[in-house]
Write a protein that binds this DNA or RNA. Sequence first.
DNA 1: GAAGTCTCAAGTTT
DNA 2: CAAACTTGAGACTT
Length: 749
Amino acid sequence: MNNLKKREIYLLFSHSILTIQIIVYLLTNLLQLQQLSDKHSHEIKKRSGFIMEEGLCPSSVFSSGSVDKSRIIEVKPLRSLAPLIPKSAQGSASGFSPFLPIGEPRETQAPPVPNAAPIRSFKNPTVEDETLNRAANGHIPSPPQHIPSAPHHIPNPTPLRSYKSPLVDEETPYGANSDTSSSVDGGLNGHGNSHDQKRAALQSQSRKSSQKKIRKIQEQSDNDGGRESVNSVLMTFDSIRRRLCQLEDANQLDTQNAIKRADLRANNAMTFKGIRTNSRKRVGVAPGVEIGDIFFFRIELCLVGLHGQSMSGIDYVNIKCEDKDLPVALSIVSSGVYDDDAEDNDILIYSGQGEHFNKKDKHIVDQKLQRGNLALDRSSQQHNEIRVIRGLRDVGNKSVKIYVYDGLYKIQDSWTEKGQSGGGIFKYKFVRLPGQPSAFANWKMVQKWKAGLLSRSGLILADLSTGVESIPVSLINDVDNEKGPAFFTYLCSLRHSKPYGLMQPSHGCSCSKACTPGCPNCSCIQRNGGDFPYIANGILVSRKQMIYECGPMCQCLPNCKNRVSQSGLKLHMEVFRTKDRGWGLRSLDPIRAGTFICEYAGEVIDRANVSQNGNEEGIDEYVFDTSRIFEPFKWNYEPNILEEVSSKCSSEDYDIPSPLIISARNVGNVARFMNHSCAPNVFWQPVLYEENNQSFLHIAFFALRHISPLTELTYDYGIARSGHAEGSSTPKGRNKCLCGSSKCRGSFC
DNA sequence: GAAGTCTCAAGTTT
DNA sequence: CAAACTTGAGACTT
């Protein structure tokens, strides 16, 4: 208390104009504080006994033997004692709607413009535009909110069990869960029956009111974002990131005074341009993010508004409710730092945050009921929906961490335990809301299939490629009685009858080892405009008019990284029976945007032979024709976003001197099973390399975005020029399109 | 008291 | 594995 007084006195003197009234007022407060903290330290001592019984670490802040941190918390400057000061009549004039989460700029209360961020992002913004954009997107720093509340100055470093019942009345009228609290301290507090009833009625009323506010936030926030925005933001992010990696690989990136990590640097560029979606914090669904969506960086979760914290596992907001702050948890990431139990698919036992070993003081630090932990606790009483993202490592590629959005959960139970390092931790039982499509459960299932622990139902053939591919391609039908596709010969590349068109034959590069990015002497890299087309893990950086790979004619070693499309399948593919579109193709592995999927294998034919090659009606449904009309789309990074690095950006219009027509009717690979979609997740790219002193063109397929396991792979078939009716503004195909996307053209051919 | 700056907790990625 | 890194909340300052 001495410290406090000294601080008080110091403060008093440091402020030159103080009325006697204020002094009297402060002294009154001081007295109140004294009483309050005495009462509270008594509370803490009482509780610490309880905690010791529960077996928490003796070095815990609750322990009677260690430094009494409650004293430290008492030593707070006056301004943090606000709740003790009677509220003014204008007390609620904080500038925010009581229904809005704290930290949201006021202008965002206006009806949100759908797709606002991504569309704006693709023009070349002027300075004025940018200011507007940033303001509209909420990137002007939010007005800070200093709404002191009881839970913050009354220390709350207490485990769940100990605080719940006794403190509910004093601290949080919202949280009183009569079902659970009554059994704990039923008759101990000595209140009369009528008092209890009144109190219960008040608490129930209060709880309803706060739940109403949470619902209101939910309703208010549900009409922005959207699938297209989410896809656009993620694609923009990854295209920038890939480009940065490419420059870094070639040592062309200035990392002297800049961040080295490409994900963070890409995020900075995005933030600077105001490109993100769902930037308003919300309870429940994040519009446009679908259950089962996968992410490869924590930053990606932030960019689409799924989880606002770049590191922390718990995201929450403080909702102003009856002049108090009610922290409400919005989303969690279960990433395995703590020993979360993720055995059951619909139940997640999640550990709170904050337990660690303090290396300096050499003691274990318990988790405290504050920040995220407090929010989870309040949410367990409010029963609000919480988004759950499960972090996992794929069995095939343990070095990559993947985050899977697993939908909405509610907290059903909470308790305290001893953590791995021996500190006290909070545990929360998350239960998945019923009726949601499975996501994490699918992963579990697929991993069991891969490990051979679970037999596949509907497995017709273990390897459709009959050993041609290095990874088996399974044939699955769990839909109908069809026993398999019509006969064809599996071939993993292209059967050329003649060399490709007008290209000048070259003899490949003369690198002695594997070609490396930034190598000035490699003729293949020079043909690619000086850029290595792929980054280290074989991911395509950007679409190009043409990609020149090293081939059999090159002097470089076969493990050269510029031969991505020649190495056959790298993913565990599956030909499967779709419900309404015949056979389709999907992968059991998660796929990153830009990953090579497969080549379009088959026989190169002349246009004259197309109908000859077809069925009775002269139609060859397995034709790939580069001269079709393809819907243009943007996949590469925006050069203006990366202007500080490079303005170079290649055209995405393919430059194919003479059309290439491939038929996979008689011979082909998995690509022949890929169906059409007007909103595809795969695109094709022309690739050229030399064999036998001659150039040959190939068609390589790459992932357009991240694709989760078991998702059907589709690309845009384009429209045959012959199918484009004369005088008709909208080309019509002969097949009804069943892709079901909002951009569906209705037909394809 | 509003509006700003500073600090810290949170863990990810290479 | 340790260094480098971001975001947002809350503390603190003007």
